[in-house]
Amino acid sequence: MLKETALILAGHGSTKNAESSRFTRETAHRLRERGIFAEVRAGFWKEEPSFADALRGLQSKRAVVVPWFLAKGYFTTQILPREFRETAGVECRVTEPIGSRPEILELVLGRAEKLCQIKKHQNRDVCVLIASHGTGLHAGSRRAAEDLAVGLSKKGYRSARAVFLEEEPRIADWRKVVAEDGPVVVLPHFLAGGLHGSEDVPGLLGLSSGAEGWSEVGGREIGYGAALGRPEEMEEMVIRLASAN
């Protein structure tokens, strides 16, 4: 079935930041090499190839579209279904976004664990924050982050909470949602390549860079995790989404 189907990774892209689409494109190339799908393309909203361009070049009559987005939001529920609905000659199926896969929790847990190990911290001493976007327009974004916080809290951390760019509790107010002392691990719930995970969130936390690792902010130890979306982590998730009915 997949052998006769084209895969389209549908991302946001950018007209200004060359790196924002890197992991999406890289994942597309890796999957093409593996020969699982008839054809593989990446298409973007704010970058070439556009979604329409990605479809135009296809030889296949059927395509499965995997949204390179973390949350169910405006893009995945409105724009993508619309853009892939009426497409000349290619029947498209849009899947859930990659962020909906349960493996995301594993990835986030792995990042938290890795940071704790570097400093040999015990989970019970560490407060964990999931830093996400959030938007008043759509509940899906908030829910995804809160679910991750629940998953983290089962691992015996001192606390696990979600904080947001555009909703309460705000990332800038992180001190109010963690204990008064002790180390804090912050895990960006963002896809790598965008400025939110690499600049905005670190800025709000008082970090000088978005690099993975530990720093000190006002006498407080803060461990910052890597953003999501590494091709080697995403590849299998994409295949699973594309194969599910």
Partner: peptide
């Protein structure tokens, strides 16, 4: 070659084919 052209000029080959077949929208 198609893949290569797709990278350099995305959509161009598809548009060209559509145009020759009279279905370029």
């Amino acid at each position: 070659l198609r893949e290569v052209l797709e990278v350099i000029y995305p959509g161009a080959v598809g548009n060209w084919e559509a145009e020759r077949e009279g279905r370029l929208v």
